[in-house]
Nucleic acid binder design. Structure first.
Length: 767
DNA sequence: TCAGATAACGTTTTT
DNA sequence: CGTTATCTGA
């Protein structure tokens, strides 16, 4: 047996060895939380608890997989039997088993956010509402918020506070949209992400026999990242633990960063109230084993400003470590270059590998500059998040076929594939079918599958072809496994053929992606852990995958990791770069506008800082492109809020490019002359000045060339080359020279003269 | 019905 | 800048 107890500190040991009864572990960043949870589960199993009767809920599939892996190391194969996964995946599984009780079939579809929004757009249109007023994004947010608070459509309509709220937002019809949306999802035999939790609550509320079954089944319930659970999730766990009262929650209020999704820190307070203060054992893990003193203390200095938090003192016995370096870059691209060269140097000097580094940013869109810069110095990287494999068009298309084959009520899948590949069925025909279905009180498939009875002529024949195709797919479902069905569908639907005939680079990539999806299905089928190998089972798994779960596609796994701070939760890296520390970006503009709560942004910053073990570097850019516009930026107020004793202003590099004849905006020039060459105090003063000037924002000039467009001295242009798509940012391209990935172009500025520039990413079409 | 051109628009984080 | 919705002519 592995001795895992002796290496623990006192509170950790208490948490691991706590027997029955409610347990709340408040675990500071880097305090060995996963370790404790892992060992606790192992400890329970060793003390006779059946793994089948342990339910462990995590936040990501990856975290679940990792934990299972670690438990396996201690207790062996038995770890496989633990019910472990995200809330969404575990309860999707239970809903699949119990679907009939709430009027669904076990083949229900799971709508992703795109499906939901698309359905909402249809509903808004059908109701004759102005889609400028009722924007799908907005409406979806309201409905999602309601569901997470367990407010159904009728509750929503009957709640005077909510109604008043919607009215004052000039969207009084949201309640009716919500009701229609729920109905349509139900008719489509589909659930969105929030429904997976909402309907689990409904299931447990209305079917006590089912509730009892699971209450007795799960002897121990564990919840990781408890600070990020919402009301809906909390109630599920509370119900499940009601019989045995063995509920263990692990969380850190200082790392609560999902309030936007309905997460509720008050769950931590509710927990004590619900189980009785005297019954709840509380353990605080406050010693950080991960980071240097500098990093821990700097992180503490950030959340010290927050009012809403539990009392906790995270400390460390680790060494002081280097100061936190702050790099100031003149543009986002320069920021990329500086970070890339910093990583390059650090790798050399400190003999590290790519895996030791992470670049963390606030928004996914920021990754581009770093990708380009890292590629230039040949450093491998991986990006977590952003556009997922499963969100690509060609993948969604095939999945829509699969979904519709399994569930013919799936309206969103139907809309996607009815005319794909093109088979002469346009919007008019689809609308006709929808009307017909409504008139005859039939489902859409009811009409489509017997179309010859209803529609004659060309359109009728086209639809009949489609219906026959689907029918032939449906016949396979019971006979073949997911892989066989899917590869048949890919071929017979014509999707694969269409992509194969597309010989462009993108077409080739798409074809490969579809093959990749088929490989994934093959793997699913071959995996002995999956007992249900049907297509329906695969689809439910796949809908809940995130990019964090996607596997590496090549053999080389030593890569710099880039991701949003949200995605970095639970991870750690030796050297961490927090980039894009600019006002409006981090903290984000939206948070600043809603004003009431910078606390969550601070916690986010806290999470980012505490990912670092040894060294932390932060950077900001003075100008940045967004939506093709050049934007002048301020350094983030977070840099000021942090205890200045831990900061070191990096010497500015590569600013010489700017003195090539272009005027920087006035304020920039003045700032530079007033700022001596570094030193943290002058840095602070300069920050203070900038922040004070913030009230009167500078007009963002779209005609100001940035350092990215520094003139190139090797201005030998291919003469006479004409260029189409002339407009580029703030000027017109007159001629250009393409040399590999680099493009040199002569640009006629809107206001100033003519210059030769180096373009790295402009897409221009040469004629 | 559809391709190709043009206009409009988005601006956080994720299961 | 990129994506998506809308328009236009065949």
């Amino acid at each position: 047996m592995v001795d895992y107890i002796s290496g623990l500190n006192e509170p950790q040991r208490q948490a691991v060895m706590h027997g029955n009864g409610p347990l709340m572990i408040i675990a500071g960043a880097g305090s060995g939380k996963t370790r404790v949870l892992t060992y606790r589960i192992a400890y329970l199993i060793e003390n006779g608890v059946d793994p089948f009767r342990i339910l462990a809920l995590t936040f990501t599939n990856k975290a679940a997989g990792e934990m299972r892996h670690r438990i396996e190391k201690v207790v062996g194969n038995e770890a496989r039997n633990i019910w472990m996964g995200t809330f969404h995946s575990v309860f999707a599984k239970i809903l699949r088993i119990e679907a009939r009780a709430i009027g669904y079939t076990s083949n229900f579809s799971i709508y992703d956010t795109d499906d939901s929004k698309s359905l909402l757009r249809s509903i808004i249109k059908e109701m004759g509402l102005d889609d400028k007023v009722y924007r799908a994004n907005n409406v979806f947010g309201r409905i999602s918020g309601a569901k997470n608070r367990l407010i159904g459509p009728d509750d929503y309509l009957n709640n005077p506070v909510i109604q008043a709220d919607d009215a004052s937002a000039r969207m009084p019809e949201i309640g009716r949209i919500y009701k229609q949306y729920s109905l349509r999802c139900f008719q489509a035999n589909a659930m969105d992400f929030d429904d997976l939790l909402f309907n689990t609550n409904v299931l447990f509320r209305d079917h006590l026999d089912i509730l009892h079954k699971y209450q007795h089944k799960f002897q121990h319930v564990m919840v990781d990242e408890f600070q990020d659970t919402n009301v809906s999730q909390y109630l599920i766990t509370r119900k499940l633990a009601a019989v045995h009262q063995n509920i263990c929650v692990v969380g850190d209020d200082a790392q609560s960063i999902y309030a936007f999704r309905g997460a509720n820190i008050e769950n931590i307070l509710n927990f004590q109230r619900d189980y009785g203060k005297e019954n709840v054992k509380i353990v605080k893990l406050e010693q950080n084993y991960r980071s240097t003193k500098t990093i821990v203390q700097a992180a503490n200095s950030i959340i010290a400003r927050n009012k809403n938090q539990l009392e906790k003192h995270v400390f460390t016995d680790n060494e002081d470590g280097p100061l936190i370096e702050i790099i100031k870059a003149s543009s986002d691209n320069e920021e990329g270059r500086l970070i890339a060269s910093s990583i390059f140097e650090a790798k050399m000097n400190d003999s590290l590998i790519n895996n030791d580094f992470a670049i963390l940013y606030r928004t996914n869109a920021q990754s581009r500059a770093f990708e380009e810069a890292l590629r230039k110095v040949s450093i491998k990287y991986r990006i977590i998040g952003g556009l997922s494999f499963y969100q690509r068009k060609e993948i969604k298309d095939l999945i829509a076929y699969l979904r519709f084959t399994v569930n013919q009520n799936d309206e969103e899948a139907f809309k996607r594939i009815i005319n794909l590949p093109k088979r002469g069925i346009g919007d008019t025909t689809v609308a006709k079918i929808a009307v017909l279905a409504a008139e005859k009180q039939e489902s859409i498939w009811g009409i489509v599958s017997e179309i010859t009875k209803h529609v004659a002529g060309r359109a009728g024949i086209a639809i009949e072809g489609f219906a026959d195709l689907i029918k032939s797919f449906m016949l396979l479902l019971d006979k073949k496994d997911a892989f066989e069905v899917a590869s048949h569908i890919a071929k017979a639907s014509g999707l694969l053929k269409e992509l194969y005939e597309d010989k462009t680079v993108e077409g080739l990539a798409r074809y490969e992606n579809v093959q990749e999806l088929l490989n994934a299905i093959k793997e699913f089928v071959d995996n002995p852990e999956n007992d249900d190998k049907s297509l329906g089972a695969f689809l439910q798994t796949v809908s809940l995958l995130t990019t964090a779960d996607e596997k590496e596609d090549d053999g080389d796994n030593d890569k710099v990791t880039m991701m949003t701070i949200h995605a970095a939760k639970g991870l750690e890296f030796k050297y961490v770069y927090i980039v894009g520390l600019e006002e409006d970006l981090f903290p984000s503009q939206m948070m600043l506008e809603s004003r009431n709560d910078l606390e969550e942004e601070r916690r986010l910053f806290y999470v980012a800082i505490t990912r670092a073990e040894k060294r932390l570097t932060m950077s900001y850019a003075e100008t940045r492109y967004n939506y093709g516009r050049l934007k002048v930026c301020e350094p983030s107020r977070f840099l000021m809020e942090m205890d200045q004793r831990y900061l070191k202003m990096s010497r500015m590099r590569s600013i010489s490019q700017e003195s090539h004849g272009y005027e920087r905006p006035e304020r920039e020039v003045r700032d530079r002359t007033e700022t001596p060459s570094g030193g943290s105090m002058s840095f602070v003063r300069s920050l203070a000045q900038r922040t004070a000037q913030r009230q009167a924002p500078q007009p963002t000039s779209t005609h100001t060339p940035s350092a990215d467009f520094a003139p190139s001295d090797t201005s030998k242009l291919a003469p006479g080359m004409k260029v189409e798509h002339l407009k580029f940012g703030f000027g017109i391209v007159k001629s250009m020279d393409v040399n590999g990935t680099e493009r040199k172009a002569t640009i006629q500025f809107d206001t100033a003269g003519e210059r030769t520039l180096l373009l790295s990413f402009a897409k221009l079409r040469i004629v």
